[in-house]
Design a binder for these strands. Structure first.
Length: 268
DNA sequence: ATGGCCGGTGGAACCGGA
């Protein structure tokens, strides 16, 4: 089973490129972020006429995550538990059943900039950086719950986290950024330390592998990228891992997103 | 060499992104 996560940066602007990508790559499951669309205005036909089940969790103008799958999406959950006041559409889960069941969690983790710290160096309450870190605590809690239920699962999406210096062309440019600050990376490591496997680094070592290139300043032409889109696997899911791949060529396509798909193939 | 963007909203600039 081939599964891709892809931040498409707007489903309206990306409809044509998304359709072409689905036709060419035929993922079994695709986990999309930043659809920037309400559920009612999501172009469902585009997906469904290609033989996919579709579950959306959208929001007007910003954010928005969806799951699409050749197999039925069961027991859908929208929103990350832990804060009823958080109305941002950044999380969706569903179960697919191949040879065995897999819980698929799609996420669009908050960017977190600008970083606002108080005199003691603590994130300022109500600020975007505090929101990011709190959201990561909630994601950690969700992973604990799923691990306890002993369901094989993956958590895939735009994490807005540069895990290590080797995951950026110019790490020094990101030192103070919410994507690379120590608090962000520590929260990401706490997630991994639950026993989750980051699919890409389980298979590929070394620098020069990116999933995002800014539209600005010729970043793509200079290969000035960062690796921020990740697939985390529960222990049972990690046992099923066959292949992993970053589909870099998509960034050179017609009217591309600033992110590219990250793929895993599972023996499922 | 240097500088450089894009999408959505709403119908002009502005917000948000990373």
């Amino acid at each position: 089973m081939r599964i891709a996560t892809f931040n498409i940066n707007g489903v309206k602007a990306r409809a044509e490129a998304l359709a072409a990508w689905l036709d060419a790559e035929t993922p079994d499951v695709a986990i999309l972020q930043e659809i920037k669309s309400e559920d009612a205005s999501f172009p469902r036909e585009l997906i469904e006429e290609r033989g996919y089940y579709l579950e959306t969790h959208g929001q007007k103008g910003f954010n928005g995550v969806v799951l699409l799958s050749k197999l039925p999406l069961e027991d859908v959950m929208r929103g990350l538990p832990g804060d009823p006041e958080d109305l941002q559409a950044r999380y969706i889960e569903a179960t697919i059943v191949g040879k065995s069941a897999l819980r698929v969690c799609g996420l669009y983790l908050p960017n977190g900039n600008p970083v606002e710290l108080d005199a003691a160096g603590r994130p300022v309450d109500g600020g975007k950086y505090a929101y990011k870190l709190k959201w990561m605590e909630r994601l950690h809690a969700r992973a604990v719950t799923l691990l306890a239920e002993e369901i094989p699962f993956l958590m895939a999406g735009d994490y807005n986290i540069i895990p290590q210096a080797e995951d950026a062309k110019r790490p020094n440019a990101w030192r103070e950024d919410a994507l690379f600050r120590p608090e962000s990376r520590a929260a990401y490591r706490r997630l991994l330390n639950l026993g989750l496997t980051e699919a890409f680094r389980a298979r590929v070592q070394g620098p020069g592998h990116y999933s995002f290139w800014d539209y600005q300043a010729g970043a793509w032409n200079k290969d000035d990228g960062i690796r921020i889109d990740h697939v985390l696997l529960s222990p049972e899911a990690a046992d099923l891992l066959l292949e992993v791949r970053i589909q870099k060529d998509v960034r050179a396509g017609e009217k591309p997103s600033d992110h590219v798909p990250v793929w895993v193939e599972l023996d499922l």
